[in-house]
């Protein structure tokens, strides 16, 4: 797992994902719109080559969604140790808010 992460990081650090061999977004290819994740590869490349501001410009969603996802992963994995935290956060409203935010972000980035 660690090796895989390092390998992926190395690929994105040394190669510019704007090149033709990197996977493209099918959502964008079909609809012409940016999906919530579009720009993640360029953002990763910018971040690993020391351009955090540029990375933020490519996809700010990445910087919010990844920590949020990892945090929810932690909350679910340690339900037995922190039951109150799990009870407070893993509720239907959390899921609805996340869906609404993702949809709003998709609309916003394509209109603005």
């Amino acid at each position: 797992m660690a090796i895989a992460i390092i390998a992926v990081a190395a690929v994105y650090a040394f190669f510019d994902p704007a090149g033709s061999l990197f996977p493209r977004c099918m959502f964008k290819a079909v609809t012409g719109w940016d999906c919530p994740g579009c720009g993640s590869q360029r953002a990763l490349h910018a971040l690993l080559t020391g351009h955090p501001a540029e990375a933020w410009h490519y996809n700010p969603y990445l910087f919010i969604a990844v920590p949020v996802a990892l945090f929810f992963g932690f909350v679910e994995a340690y339900q037995a140790r922190f039951p109150a935290l799990h009870r407070a956060l893993i509720r239907p409203a959390t899921f609805y808010i996340l869906i609404i935010l993702t949809v709003l972000w998709t609309i916003a980035r394509n209109l603005l």
Binding site: P23, C25, M26, F27, K28, C35, P36, G37, C38, S40, Y61, L62, A65, V66, V68, A69, F72, L98, T102, T106
Partner: peptide
Amino acid sequence: ILLTICCCN
């Protein structure tokens, strides 16, 4: 959440 980032949207 991680899936929404990798273009499975």
